[in-house]
Design a protein around this nucleic acid. Structure first.
Length: 283
DNA sequence: ATGCCTGCGGTTCGCAGA
């Protein structure tokens, strides 16, 4: 009897559930719907964070995604931006929009770039954010300060969240090249908003709160890129950049098993210029 | 130095992206 209890307790304690959490800037849900469905069937993420859906919520094509077993929450706008969360787990809570630095809703920001879902797992609560950080170009316009302000607000959000000591993952298109080795041709990016010292410093500050950037936590492989421009044969020349990242709280990072880039989707017909990046965690 | 290419809205071109 005692033995059976011990066996049952061990089985419970060591029950391992793997979860795959992915992020992908799809560059338009209407243009990328079929590619998205193909990738979902193939990669089978438990949670997928999408960016640049370029659609209002009412027009987002839900049917085939839901038929694959996903719960779906969107935060869209007309023509530009827009983020979404797909999850096989039911959502406990959904929060739309990145708050101001003080934690209050930011009424001055009407761009749809942030959606958070919270979930219950065997290991406790898990929060996953799909974010689309502003590009910031051209740097001499108001777009660059908007980017830096957005990063300040993101850092403030992460500080508040870290105080709760729970597992969370900030996944998305950060529009930041963290290091020279994260692009094919660093010289070509000098002065660009994606590579400006202010952008890289803000990204580093975010990481240095105690977040783990998943891909660089598991590999230092050269030429690990997540975006290749449509123009000038960038894909064929492997002229890429690494700007899509998953940042994990300590409680999430301790569960990290692997992190990968689904580079092959860039070779598909009508590809997005970004490819999916994902982590596997023990949840 | 500039455009390269693509998606979107809304009409055949302008804007945005990175």
């Amino acid at each position: 009897m005692l033995l059976r209890l011990v066996v049952a307790a061990r089985a419970f304690r060591f029950k391992t559930v793997f979860m795959k959490i992915a992020t992908w800037n799809i560059n338009g849900i209407k243009a990328r719907h079929d590619n998205l469905i193909a990738w979902l069937k193939d990669a089978q993420p438990d949670i997928a964070c999408l960016q640049e859906i370029k659609s209002v919520d009412e027009n987002f094509p839900r049917q085939e995604i839901e038929a694959l077993g996903y719960n779906l929450e969107t935060h869209g706008q007309k023509s530009f931006n827009g983020v979404a969360l797909l999850s096989k787990l039911p959502f406990d809570e959904v929060n739309r929009g990145l708050p101001a630095v003080n934690g209050e809703p930011d009424e001055t920001d009407d761009q749809a770039r942030f959606i958070e879902g919270t979930f219950s797992t065997d290991g406790g609560s898990l929060s996953v954010v799909s974010l689309y950080l502003p590009n910031g170009n051209p740097v001499e316009t108001e777009k660059f300060p908007y980017k830096l302000n957005w990063m300040e607000r993101l850092e403030a959000w992460a500080r508040r969240k870290l105080a709760l000591e729970e597992a969370f993952i900030l996944a998305g298109d950060y529009n930041v090249i963290p290091m020279p080795e994260d692009c094919h041709d660093p010289k070509a990016w000098e002065g660009d908003a994606l590579y400006r010292p202010e952008s890289r410093t803000a990204f580093r500050r975010l990481c240095n709160l105690g977040l783990t950037e998943a891909v660089r936590n598991v590999t230092d492989a050269a030429e690990t890129y997540t975006f290749w421009d449509y123009q000038a044969g960038a894909w064929q020349k492997n002229n890429g950049i690494r700007i899509d990242h998953l940042l994990m709280s300590p409680e999430a990072a301790r569960l990290l098993n692997s992190a990968e880039v689904d580079k092959h989707t860039r070779d598909w017909e009508k590809p997005s210029d970004h490819v999916p990046v994902w982590v596997d965690i023990t949840a």
